[in-house]
Simulated assay, not measured.
Amino acid sequence: MNDDEPGLRERKKRETRLALSLATIRLSIEKGWDAVTVEDIAAAVGVSDRTFRNYFGGKAEAVASRHLDRMYEIGRLLSTRPADEPLWAAITTAVLHGFELGEGDSQVNWPGDTRWAEGVGEILSQPAVRGAVLEADALAQRELAAAVAARIGTDPERDIYPKLVAAVVGSACAVATEHSRSAHPPEPLAAALRAALNQVAAGLPVPNAGS
Results as ranks from 00 to 15, higher is better:
residue 4 D to T: 03
residue 6 P to M: 01
residue 7 G to L: 14
residue 10 E to Q: 08
residue 12 K to A: 13
residue 15 E to H: 11
residue 16 T to K: 13
residue 17 R to L: 06
residue 17 R to V: 07
residue 17 R to T: 09
residue 18 L to P: 05
residue 19 A to E: 13
residue 22 L to A: 10
residue 22 L to Y: 09
residue 23 A to E: 05
residue 25 I to S: 07
residue 27 L to E: 07
residue 29 I to L: 09
residue 32 G to D: 00
residue 33 W to G: 04
residue 34 D to I: 02
residue 35 A to Q: 04
residue 36 V to W: 02
residue 38 V to G: 03
residue 39 E to I: 09
residue 39 E to M: 08
residue 42 A to D: 05
residue 42 A to Y: 04
residue 47 V to N: 02
residue 47 V to L: 03
residue 52 F to Y: 11
residue 52 F to G: 07
residue 52 F to L: 08
residue 55 Y to G: 07
residue 55 Y to Q: 10
residue 57 G to Q: 10
residue 67 H to E: 12
residue 68 L to Q: 12
residue 70 R to L: 12
residue 73 E to F: 13
residue 75 G to H: 05
residue 78 L to V: 11
residue 81 R to F: 07
residue 84 D to H: 14
residue 86 P to I: 01
residue 88 W to N: 01
residue 88 W to E: 01
residue 90 A to P: 05
residue 93 T to M: 03
residue 93 T to N: 07
residue 95 V to R: 00
residue 97 H to K: 10
residue 98 G to N: 03
residue 101 L to V: 14
residue 105 D to C: 02
residue 105 D to R: 03
residue 106 S to D: 15
residue 107 Q to I: 11
residue 107 Q to C: 12
residue 109 N to P: 09
residue 110 W to Q: 15
residue 110 W to F: 15
residue 111 P to I: 08
residue 114 T to D: 15
residue 115 R to S: 15
residue 117 A to F: 14
residue 118 E to I: 15
residue 119 G to Y: 14
residue 122 E to V: 15
residue 124 L to T: 09
residue 130 R to G: 12
residue 132 A to E: 13
residue 136 A to N: 06
residue 139 L to F: 13
residue 139 L to P: 04
residue 144 L to S: 01
residue 145 A to W: 08
residue 148 V to K: 02
residue 148 V to M: 01
residue 150 A to V: 03
residue 150 A to W: 04
residue 150 A to F: 02
residue 150 A to I: 01
residue 152 I to D: 05
residue 154 T to V: 13
residue 154 T to G: 03
residue 155 D to M: 04
residue 156 P to S: 01
residue 158 R to K: 11
residue 158 R to L: 13
residue 161 Y to S: 04
residue 162 P to N: 06
residue 162 P to A: 04
residue 163 K to N: 10
residue 165 V to E: 01
residue 165 V to Y: 00
residue 168 V to M: 00
residue 170 G to K: 05
residue 171 S to W: 13
residue 173 C to Q: 03
residue 174 A to S: 11
residue 175 V to R: 06
residue 175 V to L: 12
residue 179 H to G: 11
residue 180 S to N: 09
residue 181 R to Y: 13
residue 182 S to I: 14
residue 183 A to N: 06
residue 188 P to F: 11
residue 189 L to W: 07
residue 190 A to D: 15
residue 190 A to C: 10
residue 190 A to V: 15
residue 190 A to R: 15
residue 191 A to L: 13
residue 197 L to S: 06
residue 198 N to V: 00
residue 202 A to F: 00
residue 204 L to H: 06
residue 207 P to V: 00
residue 207 P to S: 00
residue 207 P to L: 00
residue 209 A to S: 05
residue 210 G to T: 00
residue 211 S to K: 05
residue 211 S to L: 08
residue 211 S to P: 01
